[in-house]
Lab assay of single mutants.
Amino acid sequence: EAHAAIDTFTKYLDIDEDFATVLVEEGFSTLEELAYVPMKELLEIEGLDEPTVEALRERAKNALATIAQ
């Protein structure tokens, strides 16, 4: 499951495998979680700032909209 989540994140969020791995290690496994989890939870991840989190959430929401079509 972790590998599938990493693949999904790299494909749809335009991030590298290392960043995707950090997200999975922090407990995220779906685009929905990244799109809708409280921003505070993402900001608790070391190295993430508000602009990065906002961009990540926007990419996740856009990916979900694209997949739904």
Score class of each variant (00 low, 15 high):
1 E>Q: 12
2 A>F: 14
2 A>R: 12
3 H>I: 14
3 H>Q: 15
3 H>M: 14
3 H>N: 12
4 A>H: 13
4 A>M: 11
5 A>E: 03
5 A>N: 07
5 A>Y: 07
6 I>L: 07
7 D>L: 07
7 D>P: 07
8 T>L: 15
8 T>S: 09
9 F>K: 01
9 F>M: 05
10 T>G: 05
10 T>C: 08
11 K>E: 07
12 Y>F: 10
12 Y>A: 05
12 Y>K: 00
12 Y>Q: 04
12 Y>C: 05
13 L>I: 03
15 I>M: 06
15 I>R: 00
16 D>V: 05
16 D>W: 06
17 E>Q: 12
17 E>A: 12
17 E>N: 11
18 D>K: 14
19 F>E: 04
19 F>M: 13
19 F>Y: 07
19 F>D: 03
19 F>A: 06
20 A>G: 02
20 A>I: 04
20 A>Y: 02
21 T>N: 11
21 T>D: 04
21 T>G: 10
21 T>E: 08
22 V>R: 15
22 V>T: 12
22 V>H: 11
23 L>F: 03
24 V>S: 05
24 V>A: 08
25 E>M: 13
26 E>R: 15
26 E>H: 15
27 G>C: 03
27 G>F: 03
27 G>V: 02
27 G>D: 01
27 G>Y: 04
28 F>L: 07
28 F>Y: 14
28 F>Q: 01
28 F>C: 02
29 S>K: 14
29 S>F: 14
30 T>R: 09
31 L>N: 00
31 L>Q: 00
31 L>P: 01
32 E>Q: 10
33 E>P: 00
33 E>S: 10
34 L>S: 00
34 L>T: 00
34 L>P: 01
34 L>Y: 00
34 L>D: 01
35 A>G: 04
36 Y>E: 11
36 Y>L: 12
36 Y>P: 01
37 V>W: 10
37 V>T: 13
38 P>V: 04
39 M>P: 08
39 M>F: 08
39 M>Q: 08
40 K>A: 13
40 K>Q: 14
40 K>C: 09
41 E>I: 11
41 E>D: 13
41 E>G: 07
42 L>M: 09
42 L>S: 03
43 L>Y: 07
43 L>N: 05
44 E>H: 14
44 E>C: 09
44 E>V: 12
45 I>E: 01
45 I>R: 05
45 I>A: 03
45 I>C: 04
46 E>F: 15
46 E>R: 14
47 G>T: 06
48 L>T: 06
48 L>D: 01
48 L>M: 14
49 D>V: 04
49 D>L: 05
50 E>G: 13
51 P>M: 12
51 P>R: 14
51 P>V: 13
52 T>C: 08
52 T>P: 02
53 V>T: 06
53 V>L: 12
53 V>N: 02
54 E>D: 09
54 E>G: 09
54 E>I: 15
55 A>M: 14
55 A>V: 12
56 L>Q: 00
56 L>T: 01
57 R>W: 02
57 R>G: 04
58 E>Y: 02
58 E>K: 10
60 A>I: 08
60 A>H: 01
60 A>P: 00
61 K>T: 06
61 K>H: 09
61 K>C: 05
61 K>S: 07
61 K>A: 09
62 N>A: 15
62 N>D: 11
63 A>P: 01
63 A>T: 05
64 L>I: 13
64 L>Q: 03
64 L>G: 03
64 L>V: 07
64 L>C: 03
65 A>D: 11
66 T>V: 13
66 T>Q: 14
66 T>Y: 06
66 T>F: 08
67 I>N: 06
68 A>N: 12
68 A>I: 10
68 A>D: 10
69 Q>W: 00
69 Q>H: 10
69 Q>K: 14
